[in-house]
């Protein structure tokens, strides 16, 4: 028994490492070592070797825009090259919105007379911090239940008792992460290359039912105790709209593997939090003196509205 648990943990760690690697190797140019924001209105680009001054200092070689709006090109006021010719500083006319990732395309990099081709690189602020903000954003700030009103049927159906709520929340999180990762993979490597984005809803719905069925089959054999506890809610997961909203969001925002994982995790944990809070209140409401017209679902809706108001306090909050 113990060796199998160790094996399982190892497999999980390996899968995580693989994910990290996958997200690490983007389409970045090999000659560009590092890109970063500097002050409020500059971007610093570090090259692996010295670049030729004449080409590098030509402003028309650079096109910079925010990732969501490729049509709005940002105006560069100054290009500086450090004395060792490896560090380039682009200064812009206006302040940069550093919350958004920026894309830079550099025409024809020349190093010591050799042409290294064009580069297309991205600039992001503090990557781990950005991932954390995606997680917290999906969990609290844009909580799927309280600020997007998704998944309400399951939310009201399973929030009568704390134990049910926690069981549903955990099952949901597992299936969510599972299917979101598969959806990300299929979207990036199958649907997009063949320009079949318009089929995303059909494919994602299929993926959700697939992962639910797979978790059902595997859990039934591997861990019957867990299956007894969670099996009832597994089927309910299919009927939840959050599970289809997350793949659609990550496809629309072009998230990479790590960002998708964080979004899925945040959505799952956010749903768990929402269910648990609601169940705690509803357990107490059983004992309260509620007017007969309001008993049951109506008062639950009122409570959910109050929770949504409370979660409104998080809106507009930004981390990092």
């Amino acid at each position: 028994m113990k060796t199998t648990t160790v094996k399982n943990v190892l497999v999980c760690v390996l899968a995580l490492l693989g994910l990290l690697l996958l997200s690490g190797c983007g389409q970045e140019h090999p000659f560009v070592q590092k890109t970063a924001f500097k002050d409020t209105s500059s971007i610093v680009i570090k090259f692996a070797g010295p670049v030729d001054e004449g080409r590098a200092k030509d402003i028309s070689n650079y096109t910079v825009y925010e990732k969501p709006d490729p049509d709005i090109k940002l105006k560069i006021s100054q290009v500086e090259l450090s004395p060792d010719k490896r560090t380039l500083t682009l200064t812009f006319e206006r302040e940069l919105n550093q919350k958004q990732p920026h894309m830079i395309s550099i025409k024809e990099i020349n190093s010591e007379g050799r042409s290294l081709g064009s580069a297309f690189v991205s600039v992001k602020k503090l990557y781990l911090g950005y991932l954390f903000s995606v997680l917290i954003g999906a969990m609290l700030i844009n909580n799927f239940v309280f600020s997007k009103y998704l998944g309400l049927c399951v939310f009201f159906g399973t929030s009568q008792k704390k134990s049910t709520a926690v069981g549903m929340g955990i099952t949901f999180t597992i299936v969510m992460v599972f299917s979101a990762m598969m959806a990300w993979f299929l979207y990036q490597f199958v649907l997009k290359p063949y320009r079949l984005d318009f089929l995303q809803i059909v494919v994602f719905i299929g993926l959700v039912s697939l992962s639910v069925q797979a978790v059902d089959t595997i859990l039934r054999k591997l861990n019957p105790v867990l299956f007894k506890a969670f099996g009832v809610y597994l089927v309910l997961v299919i009927a939840n709209c959050i599970i289809i909203a997350v793949p659609l969001t990550l496809a629309a925002n072009e998230y990479n593997a790590m960002e998708s994982l964080m979004l899925a995790l945040g959505a799952g944990v956010g749903f768990l939090i929402a269910l648990f809070l609601m169940a705690s209140v509803r357990e107490r409401l059983e004992l309260a003196n509620v007017p007969p017209t309001y008993r049951g679902l109506p008062i639950a809706f009122v409570v959910a509205g109050l929770f949504a108001l409370a979660f409104l306090g998080f809106s507009g909050m930004s981390i990092f």
């Binding site: 063949y194 089929l199 069925q213």
Partner: peptide
Amino acid sequence: GLAVLGCIGLFFGIGLAVAANRF
């Protein structure tokens, strides 16, 4: 679209069948 969707369906269908058999 038909081909890709069919392939995805076939692939995962076989996967599920194998899983159901093994487990």
